[in-house]
């Protein structure tokens, strides 16, 4: 059954099994997304719980015509933005995030700033690709992760980020070029890094 229908069965009929199926499908994906966006495990765990609780408490706001996945990630996206603002991490990156050119976003990442995945991995061996993805600015990283790792279409990512489709495509273009360049600079190829 499609995720939106499962959610409606939970909301309208109180079907807990439907909600459990939704959790089976998205709990791990959502946590992985939050880990890569927030970096620290304890922050991601708190965020995971809060996002699900918001989904439950705001269930009446869900519209049937909307895609459940994009609605869920929009709640998660807003949570991450709030978290960045509260902790004042990457605040410049967020505030310049709607720049159509997008180039200033990459350049505004403070040099020497500990990248989120560095904090998350805590000593674990990371692939070149993992490092390159972690060093992307949040909004560009988010587009890449949602499209490449979670299979969310660009149109839905535009809804999640509340940005025009062209901006999302541009961010994906920057992500791909940056990843290719980073990995080639490190002496590898994208195909090798995925092996």
């Amino acid at each position: 059954m499609e995720p939106g229908q499962l959610f409606l069965r939970y909301r309208d009929e109180g079907d807990l099994k439907a909600f459990e199926q939704l959790m089976d499908q998205f709990h791990r994906s959502l946590f992985t997304y939050l880990m890569r966006m927030l970096g620290r495990r304890h922050e991601a765990e708190d965020a995971l719980q809060e996002v699900w609780l918001k989904i439950i408490s705001q269930k009446d706001k869900y519209e049937h015509r909307g895609q459940f996945v994009s609605w869920m990630y929009r709640i998660a996206h807003n949570h991450c933005l709030d978290s960045y603002r509260k902790s004042r991490r990457f605040v410049d990156v967020i505030e310049t995030g709607d720049d159509d050119e997008g180039f200033s976003i990459i350049d505004s990442l403070p040099s020497g700033e500990q990248t989120p995945l560095d904090a998350a991995a805590e000593g674990e061996e990371l692939s070149q690709l993992e490092r390159a993805v972690a060093s992307l600015p949040p909004l560009i990283r988010e587009v890449y992760l949602l499209r490449a790792a979670e299979d969310v279409p660009f149109k839905e990512i535009a809804e999640i980020q509340n940005a025009p489709l062209g901006t999302v495509l541009s961010r994906m273009n920057q992500a791909i070029k940056y990843l290719r360049k980073s990995i080639q600079t490190a002496g590898g190829e994208l195909a090798e890094s995925t092996a």
Binding site: H27, R28, S29, F31, T32, M35, R36, R41, A44, E45, L48, A120, S127, L129, E130, V133, Y144, L145, R147, A148, A149, A175, I176, L179, R180, L190, A191, S193, T194
Partner: peptide, 15 residues
Amino acid sequence: SALSAGKSLRRFEPP
């Protein structure tokens, strides 16, 4: 290939 590389990223297990 950059798009398909996203599938190889590690997944994290929540508690």
